[in-house]
Simulated assay, not measured.
Amino acid sequence: MRRSQSKRIDPDVGILAGRVLFSFQRELFTALAAQGHDRLRPRHGAVLAHLDREGSRATDLSALSGQHKQVIGTLVDELAELGYVERRPDPKDRRAKLIVPTERGLDQMAKADALVTEIEQRYAEKVGAEEWAAFKHAFRKITES
């Protein structure tokens, strides 16, 4: 059997993870666009998915997302221009800045949270609640190590 046929029949975990990610992002960002957030792109998720409502440091966003700090800086610039975040001095360290969601950012975060819950519920219905919980547990263990 040729390698390409084998990959179609039994794709490796990288291919499967990519398929899940791209499908999930497409559904999430299409729904967000329909709810008034049409200028966001999946790349913005590296910031928005990890942003605390009270604000986060760029270094923390970088560590949580796995993106370089320079990439996070570029994404924060884009999101600030779009009106989703702003930079504020960190009250715990005057040298540092916090990335803080604006009202528009908070609206997006609330809508995204609800959409993610809906998507995950559909996934759980598709494979069963126990299997879904086991999948998330295994995925978490792999990604946290």
Rank of each mutant, 00 (worst) to 15 (best):
residue 79 L to V: 03
residue 105 G to M: 12
residue 120 E to K: 15
residue 19 R to G: 14
residue 101 P to V: 07
residue 34 A to L: 01
residue 83 G to K: 10
residue 60 D to F: 08
residue 50 H to V: 05
residue 135 F to K: 08
residue 113 D to T: 13
residue 73 G to S: 12
residue 101 P to M: 11
residue 93 D to W: 06
residue 107 D to M: 11
residue 94 R to D: 14
residue 18 G to A: 10
residue 134 A to M: 05
residue 39 R to L: 09
residue 111 K to Y: 04
residue 71 V to L: 09
residue 76 V to L: 04
residue 62 S to L: 02
residue 125 E to S: 11
residue 103 E to M: 07
residue 93 D to N: 15
residue 117 T to K: 12
residue 30 T to V: 00
residue 54 E to C: 09
residue 71 V to Q: 06
residue 59 T to C: 08
residue 112 A to T: 13
residue 66 G to W: 00
residue 63 A to R: 08
residue 102 T to C: 08
residue 103 E to V: 15
residue 80 A to W: 04
residue 118 E to P: 03
residue 96 A to P: 02
residue 100 V to C: 06
residue 58 A to Y: 07
residue 60 D to N: 10
residue 96 A to F: 04
residue 107 D to T: 05
residue 103 E to T: 12
residue 26 R to F: 03
residue 37 H to A: 04
residue 25 Q to T: 03
residue 40 L to I: 08
residue 84 Y to R: 02
residue 89 P to T: 14
residue 88 R to L: 13
residue 129 A to P: 02
residue 105 G to V: 10
residue 62 S to H: 01
residue 57 R to P: 00
residue 59 T to F: 11
residue 84 Y to W: 03
residue 100 V to P: 05
residue 64 L to Q: 09
residue 27 E to H: 00
residue 48 L to K: 06
residue 97 K to N: 03
residue 118 E to I: 12
residue 119 I to P: 02
residue 87 R to D: 00
residue 118 E to H: 02
residue 67 Q to R: 14
residue 112 A to H: 06
residue 120 E to Y: 12
residue 67 Q to F: 05
residue 77 D to E: 10
residue 92 K to G: 03
residue 122 R to K: 15
residue 135 F to R: 02
residue 79 L to D: 01
residue 65 S to H: 01
residue 41 R to P: 00
residue 35 Q to M: 08
residue 23 S to R: 07
residue 77 D to N: 08
residue 110 A to W: 02
residue 80 A to K: 14
residue 19 R to Q: 14
residue 69 K to A: 10
residue 108 Q to C: 13
residue 95 R to C: 10
residue 21 L to T: 09
residue 81 E to Q: 12
residue 43 R to A: 11
residue 31 A to C: 00
residue 75 L to D: 12
residue 31 A to R: 07
residue 83 G to V: 13
residue 17 A to M: 11
residue 45 G to Y: 02
residue 36 G to T: 05
residue 93 D to V: 03
residue 52 D to I: 01
residue 130 E to A: 14
residue 104 R to E: 09
residue 119 I to R: 11
residue 118 E to D: 15
residue 70 Q to W: 04
residue 130 E to R: 08
residue 130 E to P: 02
residue 36 G to S: 11
residue 58 A to Q: 15
residue 109 M to I: 12
residue 62 S to N: 04
residue 134 A to R: 15
residue 114 A to N: 07
residue 17 A to L: 11
residue 113 D to Y: 11
residue 66 G to T: 06
residue 81 E to D: 14
residue 127 V to G: 05
residue 18 G to D: 07
residue 132 W to Q: 03
residue 49 A to T: 06
residue 31 A to M: 01
residue 69 K to R: 14
residue 60 D to H: 13
residue 60 D to G: 08
residue 19 R to F: 07
residue 66 G to K: 02
residue 87 R to Q: 10
residue 121 Q to R: 14
residue 29 F to G: 00
residue 121 Q to F: 01
residue 65 S to C: 06
residue 132 W to L: 05
residue 129 A to M: 00
residue 79 L to K: 03
residue 65 S to M: 06
residue 127 V to P: 14
residue 54 E to M: 15
residue 45 G to L: 04
residue 130 E to I: 06
residue 136 K to I: 13
residue 53 R to F: 11
residue 104 R to F: 07
residue 92 K to W: 04
residue 40 L to D: 03
residue 83 G to E: 13
residue 20 V to Y: 11
residue 102 T to N: 09
residue 100 V to D: 06
residue 96 A to K: 15
residue 47 V to G: 09
residue 28 L to K: 00
residue 96 A to Q: 09
residue 65 S to I: 01
residue 29 F to K: 00
residue 110 A to R: 14
residue 95 R to Q: 10
residue 42 P to D: 03
